[in-house]
Simulated scan of single mutants.
Amino acid sequence: MRAINPWINFNGNAEEAFTFYKSVFGGEFTKIIRFKDISGPEMPIAENEANKIMYIGLPLGKNNVLIANDVPGFMGRVSEAENRSKIYVSADSREEAEQIFNGLSAGGDVEGPIGDTPWGTYAGMFRDKYGIEWIVEFDGSYNG
């Protein structure tokens, strides 16, 4: 398997969330497609949906891409209070784990503070200010 790329649905704030994620991870967006970019006679897009994100991708490392879109209003709202799947970040060092944890958890709710775990790793868990759940971990025994 080359990679697993998480895809997140947002309620109209995908671009804001990804700008924040980019400020933590760095890099550049691979592409941004707005609903107006795919609008046409066969697929009319309402004016209030035109600038919403249909696709945004942010590369993370060599083979991973974090992807998202805004859910169009006609499809209903994403429940931001539900327990969505967590995004797991495997850091290369304790320092990187802390930097990512502290950056992404700013303004969010920490569920498990970053620190040494009973299973011998350095990890923390939180829900960011956009409602996305993350686990950041450094496993010093991993040699892959």
Rank of each mutant, 00 (worst) to 15 (best):
P6L: 08
W7Y: 15
F10D: 04
G12D: 07
N13F: 05
E15C: 07
T19A: 14
K22H: 13
K22M: 12
K22F: 14
S23M: 12
S23E: 14
S23W: 12
F25D: 06
E28L: 01
F29R: 00
K31W: 04
K31I: 00
I32Y: 01
I32Q: 03
I32L: 10
K36M: 07
S39K: 10
S39L: 03
G40I: 03
G40D: 11
E42P: 04
P44Y: 05
I45Q: 05
A46C: 01
E47K: 14
N48W: 11
K52F: 07
L58N: 09
P59Y: 03
N64A: 13
N64H: 13
L66V: 01
L66W: 00
A68F: 05
D70S: 09
G76A: 09
R77V: 13
V78A: 00
E80L: 14
A81C: 01
E82D: 07
K86Q: 04
K86L: 03
K86Y: 06
Y88A: 11
V89K: 07
D92V: 14
S93P: 07
S93F: 07
R94C: 01
E96L: 11
E96Q: 14
A97R: 00
I100W: 01
I100Y: 02
G103A: 03
S105V: 08
A106M: 14
E111C: 03
P113C: 14
G115H: 08
G120H: 10
D128V: 01
E133G: 12
E133D: 11
I135F: 08
I135T: 08
I135Q: 09
F138I: 04
D139H: 05
D139V: 02
G140R: 05
S141L: 11
S141R: 15
